[in-house]
């Protein structure tokens, strides 16, 4: 029950994350910026609007936003939030989580191709490619964590990441954090991999894929993107803030603080980094996969 409430809380909180990132970016640019709650306003406005579909499209375009939204919400069932316990958990639930993300990607790509435009096709091609490289990177970090904690499920692993584990394996865990942070940035199409503010030719990945969506469909997709960012951020927050709290209110407060702080960090990175050239991105991704394996090697040699 407690975990269900934590999850609903995260579902409500999700749209604030992009808002904070944008606020930080506006601060760096010396602007006042959009309100932090802007995405909530956008979603409510879009939900009142009607959707337009191109006559090129098929049932895939229509079903994709629903599948993406439902799969992302179902993903949240597997992810531990404030209480370090997820609503549903079983052995090796990581795999289901990774493949739910792949399901989301599949529908986004198919819907993008469905519009029959070169813009969206390009976005789809890049999304597919970076997704293929991000998946092994995520697994390499996961392997290191499973080895460190000896547990086989999201809840157990994050319960196993305690302050004493950080003292035992400081360097490997830090490497896993780096690895997953890079995966977060690429999976959510942030700078330095993609520029979420534009859908111009040079940067188009996620934004350009949903170019032909409108109304309620767009609202679902925007919300799902924010939720996906929050899910990845939650994994990192659970790693970085290993303390357990007896009171759930305290746990929720610390967790939320961690999430918001991470959003600020992402905002700072977006403001101070330039976007990478596309050719460089695979190297960074393969490098991040290597970080997880190095973490594993360090722990193995210390054994």
């Amino acid at each position: 029950m407690k975990n269900m409430i934590f999850m609903l809380f995260v579902l409500l909180l999700a749209p604030i994350m992009p808002g904070i990132i944008n606020k930080v970016k506006a601060f760096f640019a010396g602007k006042k910026g959009l309100p932090v709650m802007q995405l909530y306003f956008d979603i409510f406005r879009l939900l009142r609007k009607k959707s337009n579909y191109s006559k090129t499209t098929t049932w895939l375009t229509r079903i994709a936003p629903h599948s993406v939204f439902a799969a992302t919400v179902f993903l949240c069932l597997l992810i531990p939030f404030a209480g370090k316990e997820s609503v549903v958990s079983f052995n090796a639930d990581f795999i289901l989580a990774v493949y739910l993300l792949a399901l989301v990607r599949f529908f986004l790509i198919m819907a993008a191709i469905d519009a029959g435009s070169s813009f969206e096709g390009m976005g789809a091609s890049r999304e597919a490619f970076y997704g293929a490289l991000a998946e092994p990177a995520f697994f390499s970090g996961l392997l290191a964590l499973i080895f460190a904690t000896g547990n086989l499920g999201f809840s157990d692993v994050f319960n196993g990441v305690t302050p004493s584990l950080w003292l035992q394996y400081p360097a490997p865990l830090a490497l896993v954090v780096c690895c997953w942070f890079i995966v977060l940035l690429v999976e959510n199409s942030r700078i330095p991999f993609d520029d979420p503010n534009t859908h111009l030719e040079l940067t188009m990945i996620h934004e350009v894929m949903i170019l032909d969506y409108s109304g309620k469909d767009l609202a679902m997709l925007e919300y799902s993107a924010a939720l996906k960012l929050t899910v990845f951020a939650s994994l990192l927050v659970n790693l970085l803030l290993p303390w357990q709290f007896a009171s759930s209110l305290m746990a929720a407060a610390v967790f939320t603080f961690g999430l918001l702080l991470l959003a600020v960090v992402i905002g700072v990175i977006e403001s101070t980094f330039a976007r990478l050239r596309l050719i460089q991105i695979p190297k960074v991704l393969l490098g991040s996969g290597a970080l997880g394996i190095i973490a594993l090697v360090i722990m193995l040699s210390g054994k």
């Binding site: 337009n52 579909y53 191109s54 006559k55």
Partner: peptide, 8 residues
């Protein structure tokens, strides 16, 4: 909802 439009 309209589905008689060209791709935007």
């Amino acid at each position: 909802d309209r589905s008689d439009l060209p791709t935007w």
